[in-house]
Amino acid sequence: MEQTVKNPADGAPDYNFAYLDEQTKRMIRRALLKAVAIPGYQVPFAGREMPMPYGWGTGGVQVTAAVIGPNDTLKVIDQGADDTTNAVSIRQFFAKTAQVATTEKTAEASIIQTRHRIPEKELREDQVLVYQVPIPEPLRFLEPRETETRKMHALEEYGLMHVKLYEDIARHGHIATTYAYPVMVDDRYVMDPSPTPKFDNPKMNDMAALQLFGAGREKRIYALPPYTKVKSLDFEDHPFEVQTWEDECGMCGARDSYLDEVILDDQGNRMFVCSDTDYCAERQDAGHRGPQHHDQPLGTADRGKAAE
């Protein structure tokens, strides 16, 4: 049955609810069900052309379109931020085509589409996290043949993955892979968490929320059902570690979140801020302050300082 938007006059009346037609959504949902049934397994799906270029989240958008309903509340983040181009345009896309409520607050969202980060705030069972994935195949780096990588997945031949990590240690003295860090899912499939920083890998393990991954260009869907075991690959004598920072967030003083470095001028001044904008804003609202916070909009304070 065709769904219609609540008030067609406000949205995009010529389009079906959430842009994709119902047959396409069914096809994607079937792929999603299979993906959930086999955690970490890459399910091929007939990816559609979306009104945005490949690399901008076409896979994630299709997954979101297939699972979103009129009562959902959508949050979209890009590098943890709600206010970057990619996040804003995808949020507006669904606000227009599905007329759903949108939010920047992690706690209020029922569906969160993300490009890189997993929100700092712990997710709940009633939430769904949708990842935009550029390269779903973790073995691609060393084995370009798709026929061969599929066989390797099927037969659990994952020695090659460690060759990559070995090479990292041999060249850099430690495992230098900081994003798209390979994980073993449910002791069976090796999966690429894609451009997610390895800082977020531990959050994937045993997560209460459903995690769905969509790769538009490569036309693959994979998933992690709630409370799935996700283990980052490592060596016995070089165990998996996440990034740490010596600094705290300049705005909210957080020491437990993923920090972005911001260059302030050409004099070598810089600051670190939380990449998760919602997390940072919430902490500031609660009265937390970092060293660069001057209770003024960012930029104003620095301009004042430069004039002194």
Binding site: L142, E157, G159, L160, H162, V163, K164, Y166, E167, I169, A170, R171, D234, F235, E236, D237, H238
Partner: peptide, 27 residues
């Protein structure tokens, strides 16, 4: 050979393929 990884990784590949997970020993 795998031309894009080091000699050590080339020799170590088979060891890692049969489950060796100790970098120092492989090396």
């Amino acid at each position: 050979l795998r031309m894009n990884v080091s000699a050590g990784a080339n020799i170590g590949e088979r060891l890692m393929a049969i489950g060796d997970r100790h970098y120092g020993n492989i090396r």
